[in-house]
């Protein structure tokens, strides 16, 4: 099965593959796996920087195991995001010692970017490494994915107030580190 047209939007390409994969087409499922792996990796890297391969693998397992339950194939990417963030947070929490995230990934965190060169000072990296996993997840969804606070709250299954306070604390930790 070959549905990768040049003109199709990513979610349309994915939707066609999702429908075929839901019908048990293994070749379509294989193509869908190739298509979605970079996105899953991109989400996992800042949330579980020390366990990227495991976070990616567990996310992909959960995504494909649950594929049959996805009712709207056009909603595939949003659903993948939900599943991936949940799995990445779970994997990151297993690690006793949290390691700093890759500076290149951190630099992508939109408005938290310190300068135009994309380099983060080591003390900022240290601050980020000390953030609880859930705070990192909030930062990724808010700053990387551009979701509003209500959407982040729904995705993580916490009240909006919790998202607000985590975001506030995460941002103020960064500001303190930068202003020193």
């Amino acid at each position: 099965m070959d549905i990768q047209g040049d003109s199709a939007e990513p979610w349309e390409t994915a939707a066609a593959l999702v429908r075929a994969a839901q019908g048990g087409d293994a070749l379509a499922m294989d193509e869908l796996l190739t298509l979605v792996t970079p996105y899953v990796t991109w989400l996992c890297r800042p949330i579980a920087p020390h366990d990227v391969p495991d976070a990616v693998q567990d996310s992909l397992l959960a995504v494909f195991k649950g594929l049959r339950t996805l009712r709207d194939p056009l909603a595939f990417y949003g659903w993948v995001r939900t599943v991936t963030v949940r799995e990445a947070v779970r994997v990151a929490r297993r690690t006793a010692v949290e390691e700093p995230a890759d500076p290149a990934d951190l630099a992508r965190l939109g408005e938290l970017r310190p300068g135009t060169d994309g380099e983060l000072p080591s003390d900022v990296r240290d601050v980020l490494a000390r953030l609880p996993v859930q705070h990192r997840a909030v930062l990724v969804l808010r700053e990387l994915e551009g979701l509003d606070e209500a959407a982040v709250a729904e995705l993580l299954g916490v009240p909006t107030g919790t998202v607000k306070s985590r975001l506030h604390r995460a941002r103020s930790s960064f500001r303190k580190a930068w202003s020193r």
Partner: peptide
């Protein structure tokens, strides 16, 4: 190091998806 699943991990994902 590549973070992409190696072939064995990949087959494991397909096995889950196909409920093999």
């Amino acid at each position: 190091m590549s973070n992409d699943p190696d072939p064995v991990r990949r087959l494991r994902v397909l096995a889950a998806g196909l409920h093999a």
